[in-house]
Deep mutational scan, measured.
Amino acid sequence: RQGFVPAAYVKKLDSGTGKELVLALYDYQEKSPREVTMKKGDILTLLNSTNKDWWKVEVN
């Protein structure tokens, strides 16, 4: 499932696989259909980080 999360809630990881991955630093509950819920410690695939406030991710 793809959607947006606050950029301040995730940290980029060095995956070494060519995929950009991020680590969820905090729990986040989606507040609109365009967002996704994540739990602290989740590893997500980063799809787009051009917006400084909201990053598009895919929940694996």
Rank of each mutant, 00 (worst) to 15 (best):
D53V: 15
E20F: 11
L21R: 11
R34D: 12
Y9E: 01
Y26H: 11
R34T: 12
K56F: 15
P6Y: 04
K12W: 07
N60D: 12
Y28G: 00
S49D: 15
L47V: 10
P6E: 01
E30R: 14
Y9Q: 04
F4W: 15
G16D: 15
E58D: 04
G16H: 15
V5L: 03
F4Q: 03
F4V: 06
G41V: 01
M38V: 09
K39G: 05
N51V: 05
F4T: 02
K31C: 10
W54F: 06
A8M: 12
I43N: 03
A24L: 02
K31T: 12
E35Q: 12
V59C: 10
L47P: 00
A7F: 03
G16Q: 13
V36M: 11
L13G: 02
T37L: 03
L25P: 00
E35V: 06
K39I: 07
V57G: 00
E20T: 15
W55H: 02
E30I: 07
T17S: 13
A7P: 04
R1H: 07
R1S: 06
T37V: 03
T45A: 10
Q2C: 11
N51R: 10
V5S: 00
G16F: 12
K56H: 10
V22D: 00
G18Y: 10
A24F: 02
N48P: 03
W55K: 01
Y26C: 14
N51A: 08
K31Y: 05
K11T: 12
G18Q: 10
G16A: 14
V36F: 13
A8C: 13
Y28I: 02
P33M: 09
D27E: 05
N60G: 14
L13K: 04
A8P: 08
V59M: 10
E35K: 05
E58M: 10
E20W: 12
A24C: 11
K19R: 14
S32L: 07
S15R: 11
R34G: 14
K40S: 07
N48L: 08
L47M: 07
L25W: 03
G18M: 10
E35H: 07
D42I: 04
V36Y: 05
N51L: 09
L46R: 01
L46F: 03
T37I: 03
T17W: 12
T45W: 13
E20N: 15
S15Q: 11
N60M: 15
G18N: 12
G3P: 01
S15P: 09
K56Q: 12
D27F: 04
F4M: 08
L44C: 08
V5E: 00
N60I: 14
L46P: 00
R1D: 04
L44R: 00
R34M: 13
T50C: 11
D53R: 15
T45P: 15
V22S: 02
K40A: 13
L46S: 00
K11E: 10
T45S: 08
L21W: 10
S49L: 04
K39Y: 11
M38P: 00
V57H: 00
D42F: 04
S49E: 13
S49F: 07
W54V: 02
T37P: 08
T37S: 15
A24G: 03
D53Q: 13
A7S: 13
V57E: 00
N60K: 12
E20M: 13
M38T: 03
N51Q: 09
D53M: 15
S49A: 13
S15C: 15
T37N: 07
Y26I: 09
W54E: 04
P33S: 11
G18H: 11
Q2A: 11
L23H: 04
E35P: 04
I43T: 06
L21M: 12
W55I: 04
L25I: 10
L23M: 14
Y9P: 00
E58Q: 11
K31E: 07
K40T: 07
M38F: 09
K52S: 12
K40H: 05
K39Q: 09
K11V: 15
D53W: 15
L13I: 15
Y28H: 04
Y9S: 08
L46I: 05
D14N: 14
L44V: 05
P6G: 02
L44F: 11
E30F: 07
T17A: 13
W55T: 03
E30L: 08
D14C: 15
K52H: 11
T37Q: 05
P33E: 11
V36D: 00
V10P: 00
